[in-house]
Each structure stands twice: as structure tokens, then as C-alpha cells.
Design a protein around this nucleic acid. Structure first.
Length: 548
RNA sequence: GGCCUGUUGGUGAAGCGGUUAACACGUCGCCCUCUCAAGGCGAUAUUCAUGGGUCCAAGUCCCAUACAGGUCACCA
């Protein structure tokens, strides 16, 4: 009886591992091209954290002329989510993110779903058993629990290693007998490591990190025949010819296991890059952004707010590479794809997620869009999230587009819109249906002078054909004739000589039309709204103010 | 508890042995102006968690302490 007999008993029907080595040859790519991957569990949706990780993988591969693929890590059948894979792929599609190889598209290195690669893992596990580098372990849950308690009591390191690894030196005969008796077992690595030895992780982002060598006999094949993460990682990233493993830094501490696995299997180790986690403030403490607890984690949260996907990507790029922001400001005509992402500009500690910053990026983004584009996207947004507004804008694209164009096609465009939902907040008063609602009181409507003369202004002076200059000159003349100061300095020097400032006069018009004292350019608003309707709104205004 | 990482202003951060400690967001002034937004100008860290050490010179290197985070599964 030898290792071969044991291996054949455990894995009678798997191919020799060399078969797979030949099936998945080295990729022929140019020097320096990175092969990266994003490898999520099929949880059903993409969240900020996974977007951040996938973004890094995507950009580095793309920009080096390499390959990036999507691999679904579904080896935990307990965590299976219905349509989990479809959900992830759908989310990436919506975000317009695509991988060179994925479960739908396929590719030469597939399958790209781990549960479909069972035999591949088993083939390599078999190889290890034959070589005496792995063994079946019959420890029960109870046994492992006792082991742990004993170690805690003796203040020993916890785990299945060295002399604690009870089944490590079981004779082949005994093992075969137990298997034939249908005793449940799993396959463990027979770790050749020594905890007192030091190994070094040369991380692309974090630099050199010294850690103890792995000496744990970790599980490589579970009782359901599927591999653990560690083993699947080694086998897959070798066979898929990954050059750079870019993943969250919660994996740093398992690097010793991975290094050892690559060695034992005779694989060339890939480079590693461990990304700092996205964090969030909860009260005074900072913790990892949680896909379950934090609303900011869900992509749908931004969709509901009306924040474009491009903005999310810009924000992610901003956190990902410390010099991206400056570059983007200096190169406002370029896109994310034009920026060269590098490991050495990625953060080492956690990156605090800042919604305020994201909004500011969004405003800049919107200020560069064409009015017609904003209209179209706002329409799309409203269709899904705001039916009332959708109905108001769907039949008259030009009206909203004109509004959006106010102070837009100039060197320094307005920056007050940061989301599709802001469009309504900005211009609601230009829609009579919204204006008519009861809950829109005029802001600060007490004036120390008779305001009814603005009716005179609109009836007799205001002409919607005027140019902006003509319009303003007329406003000034009229206001002046009623006793308002036209010159700011003059007014400041002798406020008592005047009824008010020209700004005060304009604010009556502004409040009349918008209810508020702040708005975009008056001339444009009046013109777009139209004189006929203005007169009606004016009556309502005077009526309401006199009542109040 | 073991192992690993981090700690720079209100916030995110740059910084890689010699800089007036970038930049962005925010906040506050002033200017411009029909309001707001934008824009312009200026103010916002005598100091880089604390304590030692090395060096002519330290935010930057070393050691301790404190605090924060990660990880120690038949989960990924």
C-alpha cells in the first residue's frame, strides 16, 4: 500500500494534473502586461467594495495591455444566493464594466465558475497526496473543538499543526481502512513550514512585510469535495495564468498559506497587491464599509439619488490613486481611461468614504455635460424614480433643456446640479403644476415698501424680446424711477436716500417667480417662462402677499 | 492572546533624511455681482499620536507605549 493507492481510492476518476497544465498554457502577452482578476462570491450584487477592487484590477490590466477576467468563487454552498451570479453580471453590465473573460462570455481559461472546476482541484489534490504533501484527515468537529480548548488552556497557538495534527501521520493502511468504513474526512495540506522561519511578502502596494512561515495543515478539499478558498486560489490563479493578484488587504494575513501552496504545488507565485479597505465613520469609530449595514455601500443608493455611474467611477479613481484628482483637474478634457494608474499611488491605510466629496465631484461632472444630455438622463431617472416629474418633462424637452442651459455654455458654468434629482430641486418652480402645490410659501415676503409697482413693471415695461442688456437697463431705469439705488456703492454710502438697492428690486421679481431669493440668472428664467404666464403668477403673488 | 498594518489640519490626503508641510473638500472673510452658484484674492497644521534614540539635519530611520484596523473556520 502506498500513496498512490490512497490517492486513487480518494479520487478514482480525475485526470492527471499535467493534462490541465497543457490545456491552459502560458498566455502570450507582451512584456509587462498584467493578467488580473476579480473574484467575488456570488452574493447577487456589486457593492462599493467590490467595485473598488474590480476597478483596480480592470484599470491595471487594461493599461498594461493585459487581460482581466471575472471568476465566481462559489465554493461555499451554504452561502449560495439564488441568481447570485446573474445579479453580479447584471450590475457590471449596468455600470458598463466588462471583463475580457467571464462566465457568460467564456474564454480559453474557463470555466470561470469554481463549482464547475471541481475535478481540476481534485486533480491537483490527488497529485499532492501521491507526493505525500497532503493527507486525509478524519477529525470530527468535536475533536477540533477539544483541540482548540486544550490549546487555549495551554496558551498555545490555536490551529491544526505540528504535533497537534493528529491525523497527519496516520498510516496509509489505517487511512484506507477508515475511508472504506465510510468515515467522513477532508483533505489537508501536510505543511512543511516552520513557524519560527520568516517569509517576506513583497506587496506591490504595501511594500515588504515580514511574517512567520505557515505551519498549519490547512484544509484544501472540504467534505463536499470542493476546495477551500486558499487551494482554489492557488490552482486557479496558476492555471488562469494570473500575474497580479489584486485583492482586499484582509487577505494579507493568509499570504503565508498561499505562498506555501504555490511552492508545494510547484507553481510560480504571482505578484500580490493588497488594497486598503474602504472605511466609514460610525460615531467616533472608523470601520470597514459594510455591504450589509451601510447604505453608502449599495450602488442602488447612488442610483436613487440620481448620481451617474461615471461619478461613482471618478470617485473610486480618486480614492484609488492619490494623484488622480489633481491630474483630472488639470486635464479636464480627458477621461479616467487616460490616466495611468500605478500601485505606488494607492493608499496603504484605510480610505474614508466621504459622500460630501463624491457630491462635489458630481457637481463638477454635471457642469461639463451638455444640457440635452442632462435632460435625457434626467428623463430616464425620473421615469424610474419620480413619475410626477417625468410626466411634466417628457413632452417638452426643449423647455427643461433651455433651463439647464442657463449659464452653462460659458467658461465657468454653474455648478449647482450634482444629481438628476437636483434638476427638479433647482427648477421645480418653473412648472406650474409643482408651483401650485400648497406647501410652497414665498420666502421672506415682507418688504418695507409698496410692491404692487412690479405689476406696472411687467405690464408696461417688460418685453420678452429684449436682449439681456436691454432688459437690465430697463430694470435699472424703472427701479431708479421708483427710488431704488442703481449703483451699489452709492447705496452703501447713503442707504437712507433710497427705497432700497437694485438687488432688492430684483429680489421681488425673483421671489415672485421662484418663491426663493436664490436662483439662476433672472433674465433667462423670465424669458423661458414667458410673459403671459408671468402675469398670472404675478397676480397670485400679489394676492398671496396682500393676504399674508 | 498570537501574527500583521496604520496613526499628518474640521475632512480626505501628498510627503520616501534638508520643502514656507503639496493638493482637494469643507469652513470663514473680502472682491465681482440682479440673487445664488461659479470665479478671483486671502485666512484656516510653528507642526506630523506620545516618549526615547540615531544623525550636522527626522513627519520621514530605529525602539518602546497608547489608540485604531485586519486576521487567526470544512466562509470567502
Amino acid at each position: 500500500m502506498n500513496n498512490n493507492d490512497l490517492a486513487n481510492l480518494i479520487f478514482p476518476n480525475v485526470k492527471d494534473s499535467n493534462y490541465y497544465e497543457e490545456l491552459y498554457p502560458e498566455r502570450s502577452l507582451k512584456e509587462g502586461a498584467m493578467v488580473t482578476r476579480f473574484a467575488p462570491s456570488p452574493t447577487g450584487f456589486v457593492h462599493m467594495g467590490s467595485l473598488y477592487t474590480s476597478f483596480s484590477n480592470l484599470m491595471l490590466a487594461k493599461q498594461s495591455g493585459g487581460v482581466v477576467f471575472l471568476r465566481i468563487e462559489d465554493t461555499d454552498q451554504k452561502r449560495e444566493v439564488e441568481n447570485g451570479i446573474e445579479g453580479i453580471i447584471r450590475d457590471f453590465n449596468n455600470l458598463k464594466i466588462s471583463f475580457d473573460e467571464d462566465p457568460i462570455k467564456g474564454g480559453k481559461y474557463g470555466p470561470y465558475i469554481q463549482s464547475e472546476r471541481r475535478e481540476i482541484y481534485q486533480s491537483f489534490a490527488k497529485k499532492l497526496i501521491i507526493e505525500g504533501k497532503a493527507y486525509p484527515c478524519f477529525a470530527t468537529e468535536e475533536e477540533l473543538k477539544n483541540l482548540r480548548e486544550m490549546q487555549e488552556l495551554n496558551k498555545e497557538r490555536i490551529g491544526y499543526y505540528g504535533s497537534w495534527a493528529k491525523y497527519r501521520n496516520l498510516s496509509i493502511e489505517e487511512a484506507i481502512t477508515k475511508i472504506k468504513n465510510n468515515e467522513p474526512y477532508i483533505i489537508r495540506l501536510k505543511s512543511p513550514g516552520d513557524f519560527n522561519n520568516k517569509i517576506i511578502l513583497d506587496d506591490c502596494i504595501k511594500g515588504k512585510i515580514e511574517m512567520p512561515e505557515n505551519d498549519m495543515d490547512i484544509v484544501i478539499i472540504k467534505s463536499d469535495g470542493l476546495p477551500t478558498y486558499h487551494f482554489a486560489h492557488a490552482v486557479d490563479d496558476h492555471l488562469m495564468r494570473t500575474t497580479h493578484v489584486i485583492r482586499g488587504d484582509e487577505w494579507v494575513s493568509s499570504y503565508p498559506i498561499h505562498k506555501q501552496l504555490f511552492e508545494v504545488l510547484g507553481f510560480k507565485e504571482p505578484r500580490y497587491a493588497h488594497l486598503a479597505p474602504l472605511t466609514i465613520k460610525e460615531g467616533t469609530t472608523v470601520r470597514k464599509l459594510s455591504k450589509r449595514k451601510d447604505k453608502e455601500s449599495a450602488i442602488s443608493f447612488y442610483h436613487q439619488l440620481g448620481i451617474p455611474d461615471e461619478v461613482i467611477k471618478l470617485y473610486i479613481a480618486t480614492i484609488n490613486n492619490s494623484s488622480f484628482e489633481e491630474w483630472y483637474i488639470a486635464n479636464s478634457d480627458k477621461t479616467i481611461d487616460d490616466y495611468h494608474f500605478t500601485f505606488d499611488k494607492m493608499p496603504i491605510g484605510g480610505s474614508l468614504f466621504d459622500l460630501e466629496k463624491l457630491m462635489s465631484i458630481s457637481k463638477v461632472y454635471f457642469s461639463k455635460l451638455k444640457a440635452s444630455d442632462i435632460y435625457n438622463r434626467t428623463l430616464e431617472y425620473a421615469k424610474e424614480y419620480d413619475n410626477e416629474f417625468y410626466n411634466l418633462i417628457v413632452n417638452d424637452p426643449l423647455y427643461l433643456t433651455n433651463l439647464l442651459n442657463i449659464e452653462r455654455n460659458i467658461e465657468r458654468p454653474r455648478m449647482d446640479i450634482g444629481s438628476y434629482s437636483d434638476v427638479k430641486k433647482e427648477f421645480w418652480y418653473m412648472f406650474d403644476e409643482l408651483f401650485a402645490k400648497e406647501d410652497n410659501p414665498y420666502q421672506d415676503i415682507t418688504y418695507p415698501y409698496d410692491i404692487s409697482f412690479i405689476k406696472d413693471y411687467f405690464v408696461n415695461i417688460y418685453n420678452e424680446q429684449d436682449t439681456e442688456e436691454e432688459w437690465f437697463n430697463k430694470v435699472k431705469d424703472y427701479a431708479s424711477s421708483k427710488g431704488f439705488a442703481v449703483n451699489r456703492k452709492e447705496y452703501k454710502e447713503n442707504p437712507d436716500n433710497f427705497l432700497g438697492n437694485i438687488a432688492d428690486f430684483c429680489s421681488i421679481i425673483r421671489v415672485m417667480l421662484t418663491t426663493s431669493n436664490t436662483s439662476p440668472n433672472m433674465y433667462d428664467l423670465l424669458k423661458i417662462y414667458g410673459k403671459e404666464r408671468l402675469l398670472k403668477r404675478l397676480d397670485k403673488f400679489l394676492n398671496d402677499v396682500n393676504k399674508g
